[in-house]
Design a protein around this nucleic acid. Sequence first.
DNA 1: TGCGTATATAAGCATATGCCTATATACTAA
DNA 2: TTAGTATATAGGCATATGCTTATATACGCA
Lengths: 115, 115
Amino acid sequence: MLAKEAMSIDKASTALKLMGDKTRLTMLRILADHDCCVCEFVEIFQMSQPSVSQHVRKMKDIGMIKEQRKGQWIVYSLNESFEGYEMIRIILNQLPAQDHHLEQLIEKGKRVSCN
Amino acid sequence: MLAKEAMSIDKASTALKLMGDKTRLTMLRILADHDCCVCEFVEIFQMSQPSVSQHVRKMKDIGMIKEQRKGQWIVYSLNESFEGYEMIRIILNQLPAQDHHLEQLIEKGKRVSCN
DNA sequence: TGCGTATATAAGCATATGCCTATATACTAA
DNA sequence: TTAGTATATAGGCATATGCTTATATACGCA
């Protein structure tokens, strides 16, 4: 039986530190179900665009999420190739879905991405 | 089928933030297998006793670990009653065992607790 | 080309964090 | 009671973090 390679404490603590922020953790929980772009997060969190960009950047920098440009927008999603992807998924699975944020976004006509 | 109650984003982010520190994450990984007291952590991390006490205190404050006095020592262990206990266990399971720290402790004759 | 929208980056500021030293408290055993 | 060991707390300091505003860059469309 092939044991799953353990993640180093170093890498895990880096990932967990990023997940230890409420805003980022909520972003990740949303991304677990729906890809999103920065302007949607701005709307959801009622936070300045640079703040959102910085949160997103930190997660992108360590490979936790990935980006894909779609025309004017850059759509972010969980990076399934990230070394800690499985751990992240397990953690996010323990958390309540954040669909209400998406619903409110749609109600306000601010939903951008199409999945 | 009874669904497991989801942990709030708030509580989860608080726990994850504490786990996002390399020292504390290592402590927790050790505690996953062996109860420990402060003086053992001081030896393992080669860190001042107050620093260790503060790390331990933060984890105890949110109920992540619990203490039990044994004579002169206060032995710390994972708190199985903690709301996020299961999540923590899953995370720690993904990390490499830290038995070498315990072995070195024993070699140096500094092991205190008896489990 | 030029305007509007989306995103990123820079710089600054207030607060949080992690470490240290000094000191107080708690327990054991002589 | 007194000395020794274990742990906790207080206070200080350097760095990290998260937010803001101002500005730069990238793309779509007229």
